[in-house]
Nucleic acid binder design. Structure first.
Lengths: 348, 348
DNA sequence: CTGTTAGCGCTTTCAT
DNA sequence: ATGAAAGCGCTAACAG
């Protein structure tokens, strides 16, 4: 079996040829007669040698066919997040027909030193949570592709989060004079659900959350609707529990908001749930706007008004960009889904 | 940055010491005075040397701190499967506090030759779909842990699928004289939804599906309820689409089955959905039994009667078993969930 | 078409 | 406590 003592040298000795011949038989068919190659290969198989040791080859050549996928946060959390998981699916799908393999890496790590020498490069999905890691990335001299954020010099795939948020907000507001609230994801540096009042916004530069915030604010501003920081929530992770908490707080405001902009569908679904519990009618009393277009949001009633992301396709494109020779960044499309939580028809 | 030209030799030269000293500074604190070590480490950082090349170390020592997780099927499909994804979460959770990293590998591959030299071993979750790969696993001379199937000589974590299926069936049948149907997962060699009539069962030895089938049949047999092969369905993948198709066929039988045993909750949910569409009342006219205990099955009405698997915990245990010194196989628990699709009370 | 050999970067034994 | 050097297994340049 690969993985035991048998090495190219010993194999060459037993077959009475040089190591180069063995190496060529496996890696350079053109350097050998077809017949000789067949002979050698089958002899190798018989003696249980299944090809050159990949670690040694990697040291020699500097390539491994392993690609690291850096996810923004803990793997356990990312794998269960519907959007991240769709992205992983896409990457896996694109890699299936290649000989490349996928190493999952958490953006919570301080650096990539542990794995950098094993991989051919990095697909970075979303800005990693750990600032130290984020700082290291631009200095890496390997193949890098980023998604939904940018690194100097690396090709990327992005959707225009500001525009997507803006359009979804415009659609949902229509001509109404709404009382707005916003529930965002990781807007400030806190592990708790809270409003952004009196707290500095983090990562304003790259963060998709801040781009989305900008989009909502543009739509509101255009309509002379003002919103106070006390009406903008932050949750630390995109999970139901935190979303419910923020939703309860937001819908307990006086006067009750008439529209809630949510930076994920997980959050939007929580708002819908809380509203139903509180007897608030949707969409009559309250409009809800999500982001992502996850399946669950379109499967049950009322269907969410949201921004569809095509994350599987994004994953595919990211992997293709990683592999491809010509590294052109590309803007990725999105689609506004007009659901039942904020219909186009103005009910007023 | 790690990953560029700077190697231990050059670093040693610049610092006027030997390579061993540098190596010791990073890996063997005991071999150096604390003071000297500090000096060297900080000098290294200053010149941009972040430690020994991991690929070279791996070649030398034969360890990499990378663990391969072999999933039974395509990654894209596995990541989206709720049960497999929970297992991955568990493994990731357990690995978080270690310095180990996770390489995802599809059980659809022919062999592990591409990666074996890069990893410290394998966690195999479920029997890999490719028989060639399954055959290779017992010959591998690295650390291996299996889950929900067995390999000669490797420690494993299993639940007793036969017993779990048996208990869930007993609970659901009660004392009734049911007309049963079974919808199974990968029972025969077909990529289509079909019954197992006149087709040889595959992988009867290891497959969890066949163990579950045995459990259902035991419960039926004890009650002198017979079931024909024409009432046992096979679906090729645990996804909604195939499940719906099988459910429609099963509920179109004459006479209509009064109980359907489903080898996953995804299937059970599909049966519930089809039954509702056809106006079949649950649990009055039809009992439905699932397997897995996924969240979605317990969130909506009616709650599934099913077997809860604790897949996250299983993932944690598998990773712990992989890391631990004493390799004892263990049986893993399950829990029968008495839902609303097959209440205990006999309604007859 | 095949053989010889340097060296990828590191760890570790042995000698000092 | 430190230095010298062998060798992990392979690839590729070069010579024949």
């Amino acid at each position: 079996m690969s993985g035991n003592k048998l090495a190219i040298k010993e194999v060459a000795r037993r077959l009475g040829v040089s190591t180069a011949t063995i190496s060529y038989a496996f890696n350079r068919p053109d350097q050998l007669s077809e017949k000789r190659r067949k002979e050698i290969l089958s002899a190798c198989e018989k003696m249980g040698y299944f090809g050159p040791n990949k670690a040694a080859r990697s040291l020699r050549q500097g390539t491994s066919n392993i690609i690291a996928l850096i996810l923004p946060d803990e793997l356990a959390y990312m794998v269960s997040d519907p959007v991240a998981s769709e992205f992983i699916q896409g990457v896996a799908k694109a890699l299936k027909s290649t000989e490349k393999h996928l190493l999952l890496f958490s953006g919570n790590n301080d650096n990539v030193n542990e794995i950098i020498d094993f991989v051919d490069g990095f697909i970075c999905y979303g800005s990693p949570r750990n600032p130290a890691l984020l700082e290291q990335l631009p200095n890496i001299k390997k193949n890098i592709v980023t998604v939904d954020f940018d690194i100097a010099g690396a090709p990327s795939i992005n959707i225009d989060n500001e525009e997507a948020a803006y359009q979804s907000a415009c659609l949902a507001i229509g001509e109404r004079k709404e009382i707005p609230a916003i529930i965002g994801l990781r807007l400030v540096a806190s592990d708790l659900t809270c409003t952004v009042e009196n707290r500095p916004l983090i990562g304003s530069g790259y963060s998709i959350s801040h781009r989305r915030l900008d989009g909502y604010l543009r739509a509101l501003g255009q309509r002379q609707i003002s919103i106070d920081e006390s009406h903008i929530w932050h949750i630390p992770e995109n999970i139901h529990k935190y979303a419910i908490k923020a939703a309860k707080q937001a819908l307990s405001l006086t006067p009750v908001p008439t529209i809630v902009f949510c930076m994920s569908d997980i959050i939007a679904l929580a708002v819908v749930k809380v509203a139903v519990q509180m007897g608030i009618r949707i969409p009559e009393d309250l409009r809800v706007v999500g982001f992502d277009g996850i399946e669950q949001g379109q499967q049950y009633h009322p269907k969410l008004t949201t921004v569809q992301q095509f994350s599987v396709e994004k994953g595919i494109k990211a992997a293709e960009l990683f592999i491809s020779k010509d590294k052109k960044s590309q803007e990725f499309g999105f689609k506004i889904l007009s659901g039942e939580t904020a219909p186009i028809q103005d009910p007023s």
